[in-house]
Design a protein around this nucleic acid. Structure first.
Lengths: 226, 226
DNA sequence: ACCTGAACACCGTTCAAGT
DNA sequence: ACCTGAACACCGTTCAAGT
């Protein structure tokens, strides 16, 4: 059997490599098999190329992972300015960011420890901080809540991933110990409220707590009495 | 030159390996050189032993890293029950936990993605949840704030580490871009408030916001008016 | 310009063997 | 019981060479 006929004579039998195509394939590999086993050689094989060909487009594995991280940032949905009240826009952006932990559980950690490696992060920060300004926050207060929200959404993403899947190379433990009422009675009592299908509601709860604090801080003059 | 004389005839020229000694040396290696370059072979060399000797005490690298993580958990300071009001005890425990990101920046991430691999974590959770119960929180509400605090302290630890040190294998970027007022004016405006020596104050601010929400939720009946 | 082949200096882990 | 030596199947990255 001949291989698939090419549309035009002389066309290459596969699309030439580009930075985008490589980063896209890398994210697909990480989503499918995990960051632990991701390697330049495996990625090359998946692209039908020797690993060394990738070095023509990226200086190394680190910069390639940074490009993968940028693809994640591209998936954060930001509502158009003016389409919603500023704090609601901000809230939805935070929800969208945390959703990356659900859609890309294996890759999400790249955001956590590589986000300051690239300029792309500052584009997102600029948009977020614009929302703070639109909501009337001065820089010192914006900086504090910006950071607090960032801590929360990154921590939530990582924790939800950790709750959903134990590491493959973990110390083997018996899960039933954790619901052992004798040994960990408090843990046993809250465990039913921490089931995986409750994690969305818990995230929303925590996010609301922070937004309520923001609303109070933004409008201290409106408090009843003094 | 002869090697150091041993205290007793027939005593081994180095202390025999134990799980504790290995885990301690592993943490020291990670603190000194980073998790990226940490390897069984390097650890063996640091202990004056072949890497394969470590497999007599640990089933593999994963379980060894779990033991290192447990050592970090051991450093969390929990005030004796009754020595402080429950919420103040809880607050100090959170501060102590986040401080691990400062004392062990290279190892802290083990807590983030390996903490559910071992039973030791549930000892700490039991203590934390006891504080919630002592403060009068019912399980559903305790679960929500327990999780919210966890998100926040883990996210804060990771973010503070990322802010303090760029990854060694990062895409090279020019740092001055980030304070470019033309390109990222909002980022430039808040940047002075996000300097490394302000991170402690920002952490305290965010923690206070969450604790204020907890105090309101714990005592809804005490609100003036209705 | 883009990719390959061979090589270098590493990994984690297994197995059989030593003491 | 505790450790070693050799081996296996991998890594990321370099370099010179091919087209």
């Amino acid at each position: 059997m001949k291989r698939n006929p090419t549309p035009r004579a002389g066309a290459p039998r596969r699309a030439p490599l580009t930075r985008d195509a490589i980063a896209e394939a890398a994210l697909a590999q990480i989503d499918a098999h995990g960051l632990e086993v991701f390697s330049m050689r495996r990625l090359g094989a998946a692209l039908g190329v020797e690993a060394m060909a990738l070095y023509h487009h990226f200086r190394g594995k680190g910069p390639l992972l940074d490009a993968v991280m940028e693809r994640l940032l591209d998936e954060v949905e930001i509502a158009p300015r003016g389409s919603l009240p500023p704090l609601e826009r901000l809230r939805r952006a935070m929800v969208s960011y945390r959703n990356l932990a659900l859609t890309h559980p294996q890759a999400f950690i790249l955001l956590v420890y590589r986000r300051f490696n690239t300029e792309r992060t500052f584009q997102l920060y600029e948009q977020i901080l614009e929302m703070f300004a639109d909501a009337g926050f001065e820089s010192p207060l914006a900086a504090r809540f910006f950071r607090t929200l960032g801590y929360f959404v990154n921590g939530a993403g990582m924790a939800d991933i950790a709750s959903r899947a134990q590491q493959p190379d973990a110390t083997p433990v018996k899960l039933e110990q954790y619901s052992d009422r004798e040994k960990y009675p408090r843990v046993a009592a809250v465990a039913p409220h921490l089931r995986v299908n409750n994690l969305d509601a818990i995230f929303t709860f925590g996010l609301d707590s922070i937004f309520e604090a923001m609303k109070r801080a933004a409008a201290p003059a409106r408090r009843t009495g003094r």
